[in-house]
Amino acid sequence: MSDAPLSFQGLILKLHDYWSRQGCMILQPYDVEVGAGTLSPMTVIRTLGPKPWKVAYVQPSRRPADGRYGENPNRLHQHHQYQVILKPNPPNLQELYLGSLEAIGIDPLLHDIRFVEDDWENPTVGAWGLGWEVWCDGMEITQYTYFQQVGGLDVFPVAGELTYGLERLSLYLQNKDSVYDLQFNDEFKYGDVYLANEQQFSAFELEVANVDVLKTQFEEMESEVRRIVGSKGRQGQPLVLPAYDHVLKASHLFNIMDARGAIAVAERQSYIGRIRDLCKLCAEAWVESQGANA
């Protein structure tokens, strides 16, 4: 490792620099709440269809059930994922990935880097792929996946997805125990930015959120998705992207209801199934319109 450990933003900048040099477009975070970088339309929607796609972006990821009022050193209602998508995945994606670790100062002759089986799936978006959890000295730092299906449709050419957990990685690089102690840059700490968010959103998502309102909103989003995806744009295309935003909103509403303990285990599957169906509608409409444009 270099002398001074990378700050939180230094880590992001290094990754931006590295993946930019590999030909990725550096996108801005998506502006609808998502539970993971994968759910951004820049991954879920854009990995479908025949066209190449190369992007890297940071995605704030909200997991209401993981909120701990800012009292737990590494459980957060919102963490940050660094997401890289290369479609088609180049044959040397593993080497490129390992290059990114060296770029952020992880020397593979000092640290134990391991590829441990992990068959990734996200039932709410009907997606799955094969790959690994990448471990660095026993810590999972990246989810590495070759996407096989999204929205129940085959992803071909295959997209390679790399998802780095930025807080974890940063804790490791800075040798800290609490995310709030991470140097965001030389002057500010992570806690200066996000502690208030954690405290307030944990209380909101675990105690204050109005379940009846959430339920109504969920149902509204659900019917909106169907209405929007059935509507046509000026060029005759289905309005997949706005429809998908509403899927994300429904998904986030579900996550808050879940965090509030308002979803019985028996209901869970049915909610997840409803979101998956919406997602599938969008995926199919996207692929169809891509086929028409191609």
Partner: peptide, 25 residues
Amino acid sequence: LTVANIQAKDGGEIIAKGNAKVLSA
């Protein structure tokens, strides 16, 4: 006891510490 995949340059000190940290968490 963890089983690493490399003979680390520092004799495994960093690996041992890193893993200990993860286990603690």
